[in-house]
Design a protein around this nucleic acid. Structure first.
Lengths: 405, 405
DNA sequence: CGGAATTTTCTCGACAGTCGAGAAAATAAA
DNA sequence: TTTATTTTCTCGACTGTCGAGAAAATTCCG
């Protein structure tokens, strides 16, 4: 059943529309806003006036650039209107980034995690300390932070607050919303979902909106994010549990406890295991140093058979996995990120082989595959856009102070 | 980017809301509508008045049942307000059903298709003839038909008009919207998607809305539909290309031309091939009579090893495939329909085995599996609900005749 | 049989929002 | 200084929702 609608909702929607346009495309004048959003000029006036009164946007005094006629006055979101903290949890380190409402990075620092103790209680304590530190370093009050956006590898529940499974904490769940209840808006996202989100936005900006795309992150673990423009032109993203989807019943042990996962063949430890001819049922190493992987890759490039084979098998697992994903969605271009992207020369043959084995592969041909080495940038972009979009909606939803004139 | 909103859209949305409520839950009074939709009484008045003026709904004179106070007057959609034709294309027959706006079946007939000629041009001609016949049998004009809903097994493009691949026509595409351009609203849906849609509505009515569910149709081919309630409580359905998702690189030839598809193991021809120990690369039979399958099943139940094995392998393919789907979405209950549902006793062991091999299976346990033998009913229900929901939106969108008073 | 109680439906005025048109403002060019 | 041009702002018309209370239709009860 649909939900009921009312005139206030209309204003809320349109305010958010204006706000999002300003934030995504930068400062814009009255007329530009009107053209971009499709709203009548009068409506834009009403909305900007309200947002200005609420001190959410401000007018930049005129940039009297050429042309005759009355000069445009540009509106722009006030950067000090609020702040957001992005927290990126990875296996060895937790990175905190503070950004303002305009999306510019203000402060960033990292806290290393001790591998020895994967207790969630301990982690939550250090997380709170980290957030407190972020506030303190920039001398901000907690009420100035409008959103906390957390990311981790692993499985996130649909409400985007609970971490159901992760390589770091295993099945020990963490409900970030309740654990950080004193913070205003807490969301948790899968890391590769953020990458897909950022790539989707970039494609949108480049005028290729609406098409689906996939982000594949290769490293110690394997992650997939899918972004597709929905009917309203809104960006829909999802993060399937790709790394632990069944690849083959080959008995390769995965660190998740199951066997035959894609990661057991295509994660760093899976490649290492095959290259060194370790029995497939061996419990995988917790962590494989990148230098070790580089050595294997070097040997493979020099023609060492088993190393070459290991990468080829990894590629095959990825290719077949992608073909299965495409069967369930549709064929789409793939962008590869993560530490493992540097091995694409060794992986690509297997990937192609795996992709072309299915009906979907034959019907639609090989998808475009590109490499994006700057995963960290993409993750941060994703954090920003998701959190700020939410903030937009929140700010647009707040009714103006009545009687303030 | 979101889309702009306006007051007229609000009315449209709320009208559709009222209309959908009337159609789904039957005749309702003013107050019931107000409570159900959350709209103010005055708003309901305005909307019902408008719909009544447009001759889309009518008031049933009072059912003065018990209770004191002014008796309620029930509104109900006018059944003669419009009609819809549902066309179900299957491998050997095309079924036409004519229903009125209240969803009651008025006429139904079938036209057999000649197997010999799978040309799409010929088919389109007979399709038009079939539709004309449906009109003529009930003495209706074409303008009275508000929607034509077509279903087939196979892959449908996202705009729901083009058939991209089907077991009947292969890769010969048909764009039903352009081929039937003289009909008002033509939509094409995958058959199992309709089943999932109908099951989703049933679950919604039973108060189990919001949860995802999957429909698995077993027969000559294998189809999957997924229904899940989205954020607005609206029903989202999709039909992944499950039958031709890669199962294993076992070299079993599929009729789609690829190898190792789920259908090559779990479709009727796949089971037959294994049971009779035909080489796996044999081009599969076009059609396997149900009696033949029953014979194999009988032998399997009597302990014949190879027949038993064939069903078990089929189950395994299904179970592993489902586990992969669950990895990409989430674990969800499965309803099994189609001719093959009668073999569930033979399939279930393999299905369970396949499902429990993955992380997802372990984390979330075995999904509930139920059997729904009445696939035809479910398909028709799906046709009705999807088409009528669309009609609701269309009727609600039409502005009233001005000056008609 | 008539009035009170009760429940439902309808109506009216207030309020919120969008839109188009045209007035007002601000600048460059003539 | 005037005119042309472009942008921004303002006003009135229109549409929509909502709450409150009037009006309608029925049962209950003396």
């Amino acid at each position: 059943m649909l939900t009921r609608s009312s005139t206030e909702l209309v204003r809320q929607q349109n305010s958010a529309l204006v706000l999002a346009s300003l934030r995504r495309l930068g400062a814009q004048s009255h007329t530009e806003l009107s053209a971009r959003t499709g709203l009548a000029s009068a409506t834009v006036s009403a909305i900007t006036a309200e947002l200005e009164r609420a001190r959410i946007i401000e007018r930049l005094e005129h940039q009297s650039a050429g042309g005759r006629g009355r000069p445009r006055v540009l509106f722009s979101p006030r950067r000090d209107c609020g702040y957001l903290v992005a927290v990126r949890i990875s296996s060895d380190v937790v990175q905190y980034s503070l950004a303002d409402y305009a999306g510019t990075l203000i402060d960033r620092f990292e806290e290393s995690r001790q591998h020895a103790d994967p207790s969630t209680e301990r982690f939550v304590v250090t997380l709170r300390e980290g957030l407190a530190k972020a506030l303190q370093r920039s001398a901000l009050g907690r009420e100035r932070v409008l959103a906390v956006s957390i990311s981790s590898k692993g499985i996130v529940d649909p409400t985007a607050t609970r971490l159901l499974w992760s390589p770091v904490f295993g099945t020990a769940e963490i409900d970030f919303a309740s654990v950080l209840c004193e913070w205003s808006s807490v969301t948790l996202s899968n890391e590769t979902l953020l990458v897909a989100h950022a790539l989707g936005r970039r494609a949108e900006k480049a005028g290729e909106g609406g098409r689906s795309l996939a982000a594949l992150s290769l490293g110690h673990s394997v992650g997939l994010g899918i972004a597709s423009g929905d009917a309203d032109g809104d960006l829909k993203v999802s993060a399937p549990n790709f790394g632990h989807m069944l690849h083959a019943t080959d008995g390769k042990a995965c660190r998740c406890g199951a066997q035959g996962c894609i990661e057991a063949s295509a994660g760093f430890y899976g490649i290492l295991r095959t290259a060194f001819e370790v029995p497939p049922d061996t419990i995988p190493a917790k962590f494989v140093p990148l230098a070790e992987m580089d050595k294997i890759a070097l040997r493979a490039r020099q023609g060492h058979r088993m190393s070459e084979y290991a990468f080829r098998q990894a590629g095959l697992a990825l290719g077949q996995g992608l073909s299965r994903v495409f069967s369930l969605h549709e064929s789409m271009p793939v962008t590869i990120t993560g530490l493992g992207a540097r091995f694409m020369d060794l992986l690509s043959r297997g990937i192609e082989e795996g992709l072309m084995q299915t009906q979907q592969g034959r019907l639609q041909g090989m998808p475009a595959i590109t490499i994006a080495p700057d995963e960290a940038t993409l993750v941060f972009e994703g954090h920003l856009d998701r959190a700020l979009t939410q903030v937009d909606r929140m700010l647009a939803g707040e009714r103006p102070v009545t009687g303030d004139k």
